[in-house]
């Protein structure tokens, strides 16, 4: 993309909105057990942050392979955490809340990594 095709309005607006979108994504993930939302929706919002960053500066400076490793680790933890809580035998209300928040956070990390990888693979590697 040449320099003159880049819109100044979009870069300023996204620069202002960037922290708010980030905050909104984390809010949706961490309050998934209290308010509508959850890991999937919050993860999608977090990956939308990366995509809007691509609109401002289309540089290939995101390490996709480390994102991939993070995603696989998150999936392993998503499988492991319910097993762990099942084997330990949770009973109290606090344990259940910890379980829900932990699972929401893991799913959020996994979904945001996955959607970002899909998007950046498509943008940078898919040639015509």
């Amino acid at each position: 993309m040449a320099e003159e095709y880049r819109s100044r309005i979009i870069s300023i607006i996204i620069g202002v909105l960037y922290p708010f979108i980030l905050l909104f994504g984390f809010y949706i993930i961490l309050n998934g057990h209290l308010t509508p939302g959850g890991g999937f929706q919050g993860g999608a919002i977090l990956s939308a942050v990366l995509m809007s960053r691509y609109l401002v500066s289309p540089n290939q400076d995101i390490r996709l392979d480390s994102l991939q490793i993070v995603e696989k680790m998150a999936y392993a933890l998503i499988v492991a955490v319910p097993l762990l809580f099942l084997l330990m035998g949770v009973g109290g209300r606090l344990d259940k809340t910890v379980y829900l928040v932990l699972m929401n956070a893991l799913i959020g990390i996994k979904v945001s990594c996955g959607l970002s990888i899909v998007f950046f693979r498509f943008v940078f590697y898919e040639s015509r």
């Binding site: 057990h33 209290l34 939302g37 959850g38 259940k96 829900l100």
Partner: peptide, 20 residues
């Protein structure tokens, strides 16, 4: 489930296998 949002309670507790 200890959740106040029914959707989260269902997809992380009753139906966690689906989520996996």
């Amino acid at each position: 489930t200890g959740a106040r949002n029914a959707v989260t309670g269902i997809y992380l507790d009753y139906r966690v296998f689906d989520t996996l």
